[in-house]
Design a protein around this nucleic acid. Structure first.
Length: 193
DNA sequence: TACCCGATTTACT
DNA sequence: GTAAATCGGGTAT
């Protein structure tokens, strides 16, 4: 899918809103991406890559289209899509999807969820619902036949269909409004931007 | 080798 | 609204 590779070649803050509306699929489970956040390089203090490459964040410096999965707070997995030019760190954190397929399996891995809108409305929830974990770190999304796949929307999301606001849970570079979410979508995590 | 703390979720007051 | 759960990476001894 050359289209995807071309889209991911840009910097994270430009790629992020373009990922809204794409389908994220893991086996029989899938959903539409409705919320993301962009993380870039040295100028972005909130980014894992802000202080240069390390064993953990090295994927952010690598080839666009790679999945970067890390553990947060010792218990939740978060999934990012690496983007930007090789050597230029950048990634888009997947914060929420609207589930479309494999709902029963998602409920099985999200036993504490009480409503369908709680199933995937957060970066950790989304990974649990799709059964994404550290074993998926480094997966290639461009090949099209890996365990995690991205499928283009039939028609792209117009700029009037999404909102942006400050990123969640960070203490540095709080002035960047690099959280992007589909407007009026109830599967977006709270607080709504 | 130690210590600190985070791109979160959930339970409980 | 607030705090606990839980652990590996990053920075400092």
């Amino acid at each position: 899918m050359g289209d995807l590779a071309e889209m991911l070649a840009d910097r994270a803050s430009v790629v992020a809103p373009q990922l809204l509306g794409w389908e994220l699929r893991v086996g029989t489970r899938a959903g539409t991406i409705v919320e993301v956040e962009a993380y870039e390089g040295a100028a972005d203090g909130a980014s894992h890559a802000a202080r240069g490459p390390t064993a953990r964040n090295q994927l952010m410096f690598g080839r666009a289209g790679t999945l970067y999965v890390y553990l947060i707070y010792g218990m939740h997995w978060c999934a990012n899509i690496v983007c930007g030019a090789e050597g230029e760190p950048g990634a888009v954190l997947l914060r929420a999807i609207e589930p479309t397929d494999g709902l029963a399996e998602m409920w099985g891995d999200r036993p504490k969820a009480t409503r369908e809108t709680d199933l995937t409305s957060g970066p950790g929830k989304l990974c649990a619902a799709l059964a994404i974990s550290g074993e998926h770190n480094g997966v290639d999304l461009l090949s099209g036949d890996g365990p995690v796949r991205l499928l283009a929307p039939r028609v792209g999301l117009g700029s009037d269909r999404w909102l942006n606001g400050p990123r969640v849970g960070i203490t540095k570079a709080v002035d960047y409004r690099w959280r992007f979410a589909v407007r009026s979508n109830s599967y977006v995590s709270r607080p709504r931007p």
